[in-house]
């Protein structure tokens, strides 16, 4: 993402420091993650200290500071999915692709995320990959699903 586009987004929010979170969300929607150069540009334009931007970008759960892999795996870890065995599914997927929630693997193939409730409790445990919901997952089924992605 180039500086012109960043500036456009900032201008849309009248360059107000108070719009920091909205600006970062909007940038991330287009760029999928927040590289350091972007954060520096935002800091300069909004006149918000880098320290505060670092805190904001790591405090709010929506922000990502690493690039995303080709496939984003979302595993629901809501309480309902948890009591129905989501932890086993998460453990299995973690072992299989070698990363923890919030991380992207070295080949940039997968990004793993857990979420608090996808609202599909009747289908839990649930894995969502690229908008497709995989329902009632057992650890073994989860393995098979992930293996299909290249």
């Amino acid at each position: 993402m180039d500086n012109d586009r960043i500036d456009q987004i900032i201008d849309k929010h009248q360059g107000e420091a108070s719009s920091l979170i909205q600006v970062l969300l909007e940038i991330q929607r287009e760029n999928s993650w927040l590289p350091k150069e972007i954060l520096e540009r935002v800091s300069e334009k909004l006149q918000v200290s880098l320290a505060q931007i670092q805190h904001t970008a790591t405090f709010y759960k929506a922000f990502r500071l690493v690039p995303k892999g080709r496939h984003e795996i979302h595993i629901c870890n809501g309480t309902s999915c948890h009591v129905r065995g989501a932890q086993g599914v998460i453990d299995t997927v973690q072992d299989l692709i070698g990363i923890r929630p919030g991380q992207t693997d070295l080949d940039s193939k997968f990004t793993l995320e857990t979420c608090n409730c996808l609202g599909r409790c009747a289908l839990g445990p649930v894995i969502e990959i690229e908008g497709k919901t995989h329902s009632k997952m057992s650890p073994a089924e989860a393995k098979d699903v992930i293996k299909k992605y290249e």
């Binding site: 200290s49 880098l50 320290a51 505060q52 670092q54 805190h55 790591t58 405090f59």
Partner: peptide, 9 residues
Amino acid sequence: KSAVGFINS
């Protein structure tokens, strides 16, 4: 100066 800040939650 904000040379030091908090990160994470």
